[in-house]
């Protein structure tokens, strides 16, 4: 019995770090994400009768890595979006509006890129932001990040990371520094954290 067990567990070892990712042949299971995510889209106003709340629409919700790639491959990339469009990727149940209860006490890190300079790489930067968000590598265990936003405007493109609250500045600083790396910003570029509260106009944190 004990010999049997020994031979069966011989292959098990902590030194053997192989996971399902190492063998595509054996890999047939879905990879669930820690959270469900909803993709939102803000349509540019094409006639004056359209109201703001009508322009912001949820597109689709997904819960696995495979679904994410399926959706990502099927929709226009960041540099293909029409002017005045927005993409939002938020945790399910959170509307990408500062009025939402889960956003109202929070804030956002935001960086504005010059459109001409970043046109060729903005899709890649946006994708890396999405991956850091759904892979949840942008934060440790704080559960502070609510979503990420892309704004396509006439002369610039903005990427913003929305957080649930602005109390824990140490954790927020770590998140800001990771975002700065993801967006390939150099040391001279400043990434500011601003509160959704209109009364607080000054940046809470500069990374």
């Amino acid at each position: 019995m004990s010999e049997d067990l020994t031979t069966k567990t011989e292959e098990l070892s902590l030194e053997n770090n192989k996971t399902v990712f190492d063998s595509k042949e054996n890999f047939n299971s879905k990879h669930p994400l820690n959270n469900k995510w909803t993709l939102w889209y803000t349509k540019p106003q094409t006639n004056k009768s359209e109201q703001w709340h009508e322009l912001l629409k949820p597109v689709i919700t997904f819960a696995s890595v495979e679904e994410f790639w399926g959706i990502y491959n099927s929709i226009p990339q960041a540099n293909q979006l029409p002017l005045k469009s927005d993409y939002h990727l938020f945790k399910e149940g959170i509307r990408p509006e500062w009025e939402d209860d889960q956003n109202s006490k929070g804030g956002k890190f935001q960086y504005s890129f010059n459109k001409k300079e970043v046109q060729s790489i903005i899709s890649d930067l946006w994708l890396r932001g999405l991956l850091a968000l759904i892979g949840e590598t942008i934060e440790e265990e704080e559960n502070l990040v609510n979503g990420i936003v892309l704004n396509v405007r006439k002369s610039n493109i903005r990427i913003g990371l929305w957080v649930a609250n602005v109390q824990d500045l140490d954790s927020l600083k770590s998140i800001g520094e990771k975002l700065k790396k993801i967006l390939q910003l150099n040391e001279n570029s400043k990434l500011e954290l601003t509160s959704h509260d209109e009364k607080i106009k000054d940046p809470l944190l500069v990374v």
Binding site: F21, A132, E136, T137
Partner: peptide, 20 residues
């Protein structure tokens, strides 16, 4: 808490599945 690095996520790109 399930975490996926950028590399791990890229490896799964070929397994894309369109939900709806």
């Amino acid at each position: 808490m399930a975490k996926y690095t950028e590399e791990q996520l890229f490896e799964l790109k070929t397994e894309a599945h369109v939900p709806q």
